[in-house]
C-alpha cells in the first residue's frame, strides 16, 4: 500500500470548497491522502529430466497481481463513477448498443450530447443513469488497461540437449488486460487519411453488416471515444526466442588457441499467439516491429 500525494487543486475540488482554487491562486497544500494497493504472488518451478540421451529442462514462472484504489480523493456525479474500490488501471467508457439505424431510432433513444449531432450510423450508447442524456456521467468501468503490466504474466523456458545439439525456447504470456483500438488508424475523422478498417463502415446499404461507424469529416467526439465498441482482449503469448546450438568444442580440442566453439541459429519474436495478432504486430506511424534471425559463432579463447 502506498500513500499517494493529492494536489491542492484536487483537494479544492473534492474536500475543500471549490473556491479554494481560483485558477491562478489556490489555498491549501498538497496532501498525502490517497491509498493504493498492489498485491499478488509470484511462482516459479523448474523441471529437469533425462529422457534417454536427452536432457530436458522446463521452467515456468509467473506473476499474478491485483490493484485497487483503496482511498481516492474524488467527487463524482453518480455512484458508479467512483474510482475508489476499483482497479488502478481501469478503462472507463461507454457501453455501446450498436449503430443508430435511422432518425426514428435516434428520436427514440436518449439524447446523445457528446458534442456532435448524431446521425444514423453513429454509435448508440447506454444511458447508465437513466436521465435521458448521454454524457460523461454514463461512463462505466469496461476493463483493465494493464498499463503497469498485465494482471497475469507467464514466462516459460524450455531446453533440450541431445549430445552436442541444444534447443532453447523462451515464451512469454500476458493475460487479463484489455486494449482499446484507438489512434489515427482506427479513429478516423476530420481530414484524417483512411486506413483499411473504414472499408466496413456503416452506410444505409451496409447497415446490417457494418463493423465501423459512418464516416465523417467532422468532429470525432462522438464515435471515437473510449467505448466497449473499440475494446479487445489483449491476451497474448509470444515466442520470444528460439535457439539451436551445436557444440564444436571437441573438434578443436587439440588446439591451444581456442578452448570452446559453438555455432548457433536463433530467432527472436518469431510468433505471437493472440486473437488480435495483426493489431499487436502493427506499428502505426513509427518503425515497424522486427523479427530477428541470427546465425552466430561463439568462441572462447
Amino acid at each position: 500500500m502506498t500513500d499517494i500525494l493529492v494536489n491542492a487543486a484536487t483537494m479544492a475540488a473534492v474536500v475543500n470548497p471549490n473556491w479554494f482554487n481560483a485558477g491562478n491562486s489556490i489555498f491549501g497544500a498538497n496532501v498525502n491522502r490517497d491509498i493504493e494497493s498492489r498485491s499478488g504472488f509470484d511462482f516459479g518451478a523448474t523441471f529437469k529430466k533425462k529422457l534417454n540421451e536427452v536432457n530436458v529442462i522446463l521452467g515456468l514462472n509467473g506473476t499474478y497481481y491485483v490493484t485497487k484504489a483503496i482511498k481516492r480523493t474524488e467527487i463524482q456525479n453518480e455512484d458508479y463513477l467512483y474510482r475508489q474500490g476499483h482497479v488502478l488501471d481501469g478503462i472507463w467508457g461507454y457501453e455501446n448498443a450498436g449503430f443508430f439505424k435511422d432518425q426514428d431510432d435516434i428520436k427514440n433513444s436518449p439524447v446523445h450530447s457528446l458534442g456532435v449531432t448524431v446521425k444514423p450510423g453513429d454509435l448508440k450508447y447506454k444511458d447508465q443513469n437513466g436521465d435521458g442524456i448521454i454524457n460523461v456521467n454514463d461512463q462505466v468501468l469496461l476493463g483493465r488497461g494493464g498499463w503497469y503490466g498485465a494482471p497475469f504474466n507467464l514466462g516459460m523456458h524450455f531446453t533440450a540437449q541431445w549430445r552436442k545439439l541444444t534447443l532453447f525456447a523462451l515464451g512469454v504470456g500476458r493475460y487479463g488486460a484489455d486494449g482499446v483500438k484507438s489512434g489515427s488508424y482506427f479513429w478516423v475523422g476530420g481530414e484524417d487519411k483512411y486506413s483499411k478498417v473504414v472499408r466496413d463502415r456503416w452506410t444505409t446499404e451496409t447497415a446490417d453488416i457494418a463493423t465501423y461507424p459512418r464516416l465523417t469529416t467532422q468532429s470525432k467526439a462522438h464515435n471515437f471515444v473510449t467505448s466497449d465498441f473499440w475494446m479487445y482482449k489483449a491476451n497474448r503469448f509470444d515466442l520470444a526466442k528460439v535457439q539451436v546450438t551445436y557444440d564444436l568444442s571437441s573438434a578443436i580440442r587439440k588446439s591451444n588457441f581456442m578452448r570452446e566453439l559453438n555455432v548457433y541459429v536463433s530467432g527472436a519474436n518469431l510468433l505471437t499467439v493472440s486473437k488480435e495478432r495483426e493489431l499487436m504486430e502493427m506499428n502505426v506511424g513509427g518503425t515497424p516491429q522486427t523479427r530477428f534471425y541470427n546465425f552466430g559463432v561463439r568462441a572462447l579463447f
Binding site: 473556491w19 479554494f20 481560483a22 491562486s25 489555498f27
Partner: peptide, 13 residues
C-alpha cells in the same frame, strides 16, 4: 455564476 462563486469567496478569503 460559477466563476463568480469561486472568485468571490476566494477574494473574501
Amino acid at each position: 455564476g460559477f466563476n463568480r462563486w469561486t472568485n468571490g469567496y476566494h477574494a473574501i478569503q
